[in-house]
Amino acid sequence: MSDCGEKAVSVIGFIGSVFSPWYRWSGRKNPANHCCINVATYGKGGRFTMTDRGEAALRVSDNTFQVGPSQMHWNESQLVININEVSGPPIISRVRGQIVITPDHITHVEMPLTPAGTHVWRPFAPKAHIKVDLESKGWQWEGHGYFDANFGTRALEDDFSYWTWGRYPLSDGSLCFYDADRRDGSKLAVGLKFEDTGDIRVLDASPKVPFKRSKWQVRRETRADAGYRPHEVKPMLDAPFYTRAAVRTQFAGEETIGVHEALDLNRFRSPLLKPMLAVRVPRRKGWQFQSDAD
């Protein structure tokens, strides 16, 4: 999010694009054949890009993840993301430029989200500086950021019916909350505070507080001090099964604005939703890198 609070960006790299209808329709046999670098910008002039690409577009090394014309590269101190994508409807346009994430520090936390370890969360940099430089007027800004990863061996909708996640910056670190309803009837409820010193503290669960549903009526809740009512301050992504927004809440008396997500996996597993998603997630199976053509 920008320091002014007016703009935000999300970039997600996928091998086995979990929200792609094409991957689902393929039977999820070959994750590498459904890869993507999803870029969404929020604020005036915001765009959404999510192109499902084939295996020919994928290149992975120890420090670089490339999908077609876009790539993420770790240079030992920063994550440098070079973007060259085309946004989907209703406004089709080029989204091109660079985003640099500079972590305050790197953690070694790796947390299973299911008892069997079929899904794992890895918060590499819970607090970071972000610098955005896109080829569009007004899309050069700096702010606070975050860098994590999720790994899985099963479809999300097979193991979860609902989950919510939030990352909130604090004056002395940042907080992350993960809450989920699993298909087996058990629940995930995790709160971690990442101190600026590098220490990590497991939090006693603050009350889980519901707040206003999204425009698509996706249920939303997050953690907050007792008696405090969280609320959305900036809408970001609003889909029939998924919502992302900047949310104001309070912990230990400190108000903070962070990024909150909620995911209704009962809705997502509906086959009726997949054709709708295909409009927003085009499939491009062919690709040739310039070096291969030389």
Rank of each mutant, 00 (worst) to 15 (best):
T64C: 12
L170E: 08
G43N: 03
Q98W: 04
R96Q: 15
G173V: 01
T114Q: 08
T107I: 03
N63G: 03
A116V: 04
A40G: 02
G68H: 06
F147H: 12
Q66T: 10
R94D: 09
G143Q: 08
A180W: 10
V100L: 04
V132A: 11
D159V: 05
K127W: 00
W163S: 02
Q71W: 14
D179W: 11
G97K: 09
E110C: 09
P90Q: 04
G173H: 09
G97D: 12
D159L: 10
F160G: 00
M111H: 14
V120P: 02
I81P: 03
I83S: 07
L134A: 09
P69Y: 15
Q66C: 13
P169N: 07
K127N: 05
P123R: 14
G143Y: 07
Q78H: 12
R167V: 05
A56E: 15
M111E: 14
K131F: 10
S136Y: 08
A116C: 09
D148K: 14
H144P: 01
H73V: 03
W165I: 00
G45T: 01
H108G: 06
M50P: 00
I92K: 09
T164S: 15
K131A: 14
L175I: 12
V86H: 12
P69G: 14
G46N: 07
A125G: 13
T51S: 05
D104K: 15
L170I: 01
F151L: 10
G166K: 03
